[in-house]
């Protein structure tokens, strides 16, 4: 509610700037013009939104799967830690943006390259957060498991204790992922695409349809914010024991 009020206030400031600032519409269109453009181009915007949303959703899904599996392998195997972890961390020095043109070259102008972008951009936060959670299982629980079961039951301990205990950490990773996945998809669209909100923004920009560009930006922002809150709410529902009493996981 407060957020909506702030938004309304900002829109007023924007409209006032147009009225009193004498800004040309090709630099900053009025909120009204953007709203009109949104209305007139609703059909086209919807089509592009579906494309971008699909890229983000599939990128999130694949990135989460890949990141989750990587974290599990790292958590389970000491050898994997020794061989993969330094490379994984070093690879973060490469800006994902820089390889976007390569992805488009390899995977084409279609969905593939955008999904790959979104996937790559969320892969590290998901992996790092989940792995961190897996490494920090409270010692008391591990001791209890050690007394209950023989040492060769490592997988059972991982499955019944370490993985559930790390889910809140994975959830933090997924919240970050929800915030950055749209960046990946739009970036992929900027580098080369024939559909999607990012493509529409560039397209409108080059034709001086700044009001349409703002409309696309508004839809993209709404999509990203909606995604974040949906993921956040979903995670809270899935992990009621954590959101209700965060201190219980600190017990050791």
């Amino acid at each position: 509610m407060r957020g909506l009020l702030t938004l309304a206030g900002l829109l007023l400031v924007w409209q006032a700037a147009i009225l009193f600032g004498d800004l040309p519409p090709y630099l900053l269109p009025s909120p009204l013009a953007v709203a009109l453009s949104l209305w007139r181009n609703a059909g086209a915007l919807l089509g592009h939104t579906v494309v971008t949303a699909l890229e983000i959703a599939l990128g999130m899904l694949l990135g989460t799967l890949l990141g989750g599996v990587t974290a599990l392998v790292l958590g389970y195997s000491r050898r994997a830690r020794r061989w993969l972890l330094p490379m994984l961390i070093a690879s973060q020095a490469i800006p994902v943006f820089a390889i976007a043109p390569l992805l488009v070259l390899w995977l084409g102008y279609g969905l593939g390259s955008k999904i790959a972008m979104a996937m790559l951009i969320i892969y590290f936060p998901v992996t790092a957060n989940f792995y961190d959670g897996l490494r920090h299982t409270p010692q008391g629980w591990l001791d209890l498991a050690r007394v209950m079961a023989p040492a060769d039951r490592r997988w059972a301990v991982l499955r019944h204790i370490a993985i559930p205990a790390a889910l809140p950490a994975l959830a933090s990773g997924l919240r970050v992922a929800a915030a950055v996945a749209p960046i990946g998809a739009v970036l992929g669209e900027w580098v080369g695409a024939s559909a999607g909100l990012g493509y529409l923004m560039l397209h409108a920009n080059s034709r001086m349809q700044i009001d349409l560009m703002f409309a696309a930006l508004g839809v993209l922002a709404a999509l990203a914010v909606g995604l974040y809150f949906a993921v956040d709410a979903g995670l809270k529902k899935l992990l009621p024991w954590h959101s209700a009493h965060p201190e219980t996981t600190a017990a050791d």
């Binding site: 008391g140 019944h160 559930p164 992990l239 219980t248 017990a251 050791d252």
Partner: peptide, 10 residues
């Protein structure tokens, strides 16, 4: 059995 109950919250 420890001082902390070590019950798994989930």
């Amino acid at each position: 059995m420890a001082q902390q109950d070590l019950l798994l919250p989930w």
